[in-house]
Amino acid sequence: MRPVWWFTPEDRALRGVGDAFLVGEALLVAPVCEPGVRSRRVRLPKGQWYDTATEVVYEGERTVEVAAPLDRVPVLVRAGAVVPVREAGDTVLDVWAPLPESGPGAGLYIPDEEGGWSPPLVERYTSRLEADGEVVVERSGGPGAGPGGASAAGRPVRVRGLGAAEAVGPA
């Protein structure tokens, strides 16, 4: 976990955010810290950020209002992020569609090796948006590297966020 200003220390407005945090570079967690609150304001670092529940995309470097119902903690994910998710005993790569403005994205997956005594194998993935709107995921370096569509180097891929019509800018 890191403070929200970690990757953009030049954004002084992020220095005052004490009730949200980053998990790696991709996930911004914004818990509700007051009883009875059903939405909250979140200051976003630069870039484009998807709400993981609604798939609405927000433009960064501003403060946005996100829903915070009782049944979930608000989590936003950077456009282009490749996030490994465990489902039914398998690992699926959730790829949050890069936007034309966001450029390519990336993510890591470190498989859980039995016993934990050998050096970890790090799988590095990149995502990009092609001119025709197709999202391409590639594994870079290591065994099984290469381009992927429905799967990236043998891992299933699910593209998310394409349903968002346009970035939500300042109110």
Rank of each mutant, 00 (worst) to 15 (best):
residue 41 R to G: 02
residue 43 R to N: 04
residue 44 L to F: 08
residue 44 L to Q: 02
residue 44 L to E: 01
residue 46 K to L: 12
residue 46 K to V: 14
residue 46 K to C: 06
residue 48 Q to V: 14
residue 48 Q to L: 14
residue 49 W to H: 02
residue 53 A to G: 00
residue 56 V to K: 10
residue 57 V to P: 00
residue 59 E to M: 12
residue 60 G to Y: 10
residue 61 E to Q: 11
residue 62 R to C: 08
residue 65 E to W: 10
residue 65 E to I: 14
residue 65 E to F: 11
residue 65 E to M: 12
residue 66 V to L: 05
residue 67 A to M: 11
residue 68 A to M: 08
residue 70 L to P: 05
residue 71 D to H: 14
residue 72 R to L: 12
residue 72 R to K: 11
residue 73 V to T: 15
residue 73 V to Y: 08
residue 74 P to E: 05
residue 74 P to H: 04
residue 75 V to M: 10
residue 75 V to A: 03
residue 76 L to V: 09
residue 78 R to I: 05
residue 82 V to C: 07
residue 82 V to Y: 04
residue 83 V to E: 05
residue 87 E to W: 13
residue 92 V to Q: 00
residue 94 D to Q: 14
residue 97 A to S: 10
residue 97 A to R: 07
residue 99 L to D: 00
residue 99 L to I: 07
residue 99 L to A: 02
residue 101 E to P: 06
residue 103 G to N: 03
residue 105 G to M: 11
residue 106 A to V: 14
residue 106 A to H: 12
residue 106 A to S: 11
residue 109 Y to T: 04
residue 109 Y to A: 02
residue 110 I to M: 11
residue 110 I to P: 00
residue 111 P to D: 06
residue 112 D to Y: 13
residue 114 E to T: 13
residue 115 G to V: 13
residue 116 G to H: 05
residue 116 G to D: 04
residue 118 S to I: 13
residue 119 P to F: 09
residue 120 P to M: 12
residue 124 R to T: 14
residue 124 R to D: 00
residue 127 S to W: 09
residue 129 L to C: 02
residue 129 L to P: 01
residue 129 L to R: 03
residue 130 E to N: 06
residue 132 D to M: 07
residue 134 E to H: 12
residue 134 E to V: 15
residue 135 V to S: 01
residue 136 V to H: 08
residue 137 V to A: 00
residue 138 E to N: 07
residue 138 E to A: 12
residue 138 E to P: 02
residue 139 R to S: 01
residue 139 R to Y: 03
residue 140 S to V: 15
residue 140 S to Y: 14
residue 142 G to F: 14
residue 144 G to H: 11
residue 144 G to K: 07
residue 146 G to P: 07
residue 146 G to D: 05
residue 146 G to W: 14
residue 147 P to I: 13
residue 148 G to C: 07
residue 148 G to L: 04
residue 149 G to F: 15
residue 149 G to N: 07
residue 150 A to Y: 14
residue 150 A to P: 06
residue 151 S to N: 11
residue 152 A to C: 15
